[in-house]
């Protein structure tokens, strides 16, 4: 937090930047004291159990809710600044569309309501999925509907695409197809993506940036390539029914014991030495450990800390 000069000025390097962000519904804080940022150009995953505050965060970004505390910036500008709406697109889990509209009319809606509309890109996405333009939305399959919703989102030419569980209700083939579509369109236009998902394997495949929420707070945020290798999976024998004291020098995220055997996911604070077997955990293992242990200390990589002076590696 040495440098706070970027604060208050539009800084397009950060697609999303939260400082002390909080949202209270009646007595309960759905999101509390959240501070993190997502650099532009990343495919970021928003991970957390149900009720962790993922949807609340997306609602705050899309102006469907007002923050109760702190602030949220999109490409450096406050989320509720007038010009910000055209810079992001949002796709909800249930992908609402007008059921009686045809595919063509749905795209026309996008054209009528968005000044920067890219009809060619939208039509290409629809056509490549063999979705007939004159079909009514209510006759489309789940995958086709999702594709149309994506066409609407990408037709807006967003710089930031916010997705709430985009593939939850898709069959495996459609999921693979939509996943490829999302990544290729994002690559084509340099779109930053923030997607909430429960599908950890999918996140591991698709995402290069992580924002982990639990109980309304940020547990982990940063580059997947940096965060995951900071952890080691340690297996060994317990000492007097407890974790070996030597491990306490490190941050133990999660321990599981069976008999005298223990398996611990630790964040290394220096070299790990001991009569243990060490393995490199995958992203899925690290995510699961953090999700199961909401009390573990939060971990933010330098790029994820607002105000940290660092160029975004593009």
């Amino acid at each position: 937090m040495r440098d706070t000069t970027t604060y208050g000025t539009a800084d397009a390097r950060w697609a999303l930047e939260a400082r002390g962000l909080g949202k209270r519904y009646r007595r309960r804080w759905a999101l509390k004291d959240c501070t993190f940022r997502v650099p532009a150009g990343r495919i970021a995953a928003l991970v957390g159990p149900n009720g962790a505050g993922k949807s609340t965060l997306l609602n705050l970004a899309t102006r469907l809710a007002e923050p109760s505390a702190g602030e949220l910036r999109i490409f450096g500008a406050p989320a509720d600044a007038p010009g910000t709406m055209g810079r992001w697109a949002y796709l909800g889990q249930d992908k609402p569309l007008f059921k009686r509209f045809t595919v063509e009319q749905t795209l026309r809606m996008g054209r009528e309501l968005n000044p920067g509309w890219d009809q060619r890109a939208a039509e290409r996405i629809v056509r490549s999925g063999q979705v007939p333009l004159d079909a009514r939305v209510e006759t489309l399959s789940g995958g086709q509907r999702t594709r149309l919703a994506f066409a609407l989102a990408f037709g807006k030419r967003p710089e930031l695409l916010l997705l709430d569980e985009p593939m939850a209700d898709l069959d495996p083939v459609a999921r693979d197809e939509i996943g490829s579509l999302l990544l290729s369109e994002a690559a084509e236009h340099g779109t930053t993506v923030l997607m909430s998902s429960h599908l950890l394997s999918e996140i591991e495949d698709m995402c290069d940036y992580l924002v982990v929420l639990a109980e309304g707070r940020v547990r982990m945020a940063g580059e997947a390539d940096e965060l995951v290798p900071m952890h080691t999976l340690v297996t060994g024998v317990t000492e007097e029914d407890a974790l070996p004291a030597a491990l306490n020098a490190h941050t133990v995220i999660e321990v599981r014991t069976s008999g005298r055997h223990f398996t611990a996911l630790v964040r290394r604070q220096g070299p790990l030495q001991g009569p243990w077997q060490l393995t490199e955990p995958g992203m899925e293992e690290v995510l699961l450990a953090y999700l199961r242990s909401p009390g573990a200390p939060a971990l933010l990589s330098p790029t994820a800390v607002p105000g940290h002076r660092e160029e975004s590696a593009a």
Binding site: L64, F98, K156
Partner: peptide, 14 residues
Amino acid sequence: ENGTARLVTTQSVS
């Protein structure tokens, strides 16, 4: 009810 309020208000109209 259909979520289309959200659909429209997340386009570029307030």
